[in-house]
């Protein structure tokens, strides 16, 4: 009863060339159950085809290899990728739609984090020392920073009313707002008229390529 009779299911049992050809679909898990059982039965008893299976598994492992997820994330955020050269990564991207899509999803320009900007302002407002330094730093740094930022094209002007604008998590990135387009972004420069006073227009984030204004207060 335990013995497999190979002729039991179909006119011909699976032979070695057929078995070898079917291996990729055994590996991707899409064989019909009857075919799968026949193939596994064959593999049980055939050393040659088991070696082929090992080979197919190696090929599968190699050809399913992609850019490591950390390198994808780093690249998308403008950092140098770890453990992989930028050249190899970019060559792979040119060939691989799935890694390209991962990069696209991870790229931060799609996101405007108004929530974070609001909390940063509030943290800054609760630290009087920090506040004074910020004001001094911003006052001293703003002119130079604006020039720099305009030149670098990375200025972000967030013209909003300070009060009454609820953070909108679904806000779409407007073309002019490219947050985080470069890696080493510093913190947010806050230049707020009276801080929590609910006043006028706010510079909620003046972001420079090299974190310029962020360092103005340190």
């Amino acid at each position: 009863m335990e013995t497999t009779h190979k002729n039991q299911h179909s006119n011909a049992a699976i032979d070695c060339p057929q078995a070898v050809e079917l291996l990729p679909w055994l590996l991707n898990g899409t064989l019909e159950s009857e075919e799968r059982e026949e193939l596994l039965g064959h593999l049980e008893s055939c050393d040659g085809c088991r070696r082929e299976l090992d080979e197919a598994a190696v090929a599968w492992q190699l050809l399913n290899r992609h850019v490591p997820s950390l390198a994808i994330a780093e690249y998308a955020h403008g950092l140098e990728p770890s453990d992989l050269s930028r050249e190899r990564l970019e060559k792979h991207l040119a060939l691989c739609p799935s890694c390209r899509q991962e990069i696209e999803f991870a790229t931060p320009d799609q996101v405007v984090d108004l929530d974070a900007a609001r909390i940063e302002r509030s943290i800054a407002a609760r630290r009087p020392d920090h506040l004074r330094r910020t004001i001094r730093g911003v006052a001293a740094g703003v002119a130079a920073s604006i020039t720099l930022a305009l030149v670098s094209g990375a200025i972000i002007l967030d013209w909003r009313e300070n009060a009454g604008t609820a953070p909108n998590p679904t806000a779409e990135a407007r073309p002019a707002e490219r947050h985080d387009s470069k890696p080493a972004l510093g913190a947010t420069g806050v230049f707020d008229d009276g801080f929590e006073s609910g006043a006028i227009t706010t510079w909620s984030s003046v972001t420079l390529d090299d974190g310029g204004i962020a360092n103005a207060d340190s």
Binding site: Q61, L63, R65, V67, P68, L84, R88, L95, C96
Partner: peptide, 8 residues
């Protein structure tokens, strides 16, 4: 990873 990406 490097080898695999070169093969591909």
């Amino acid at each position: 990873t490097d080898l695999a990406l070169r093969i591909l």
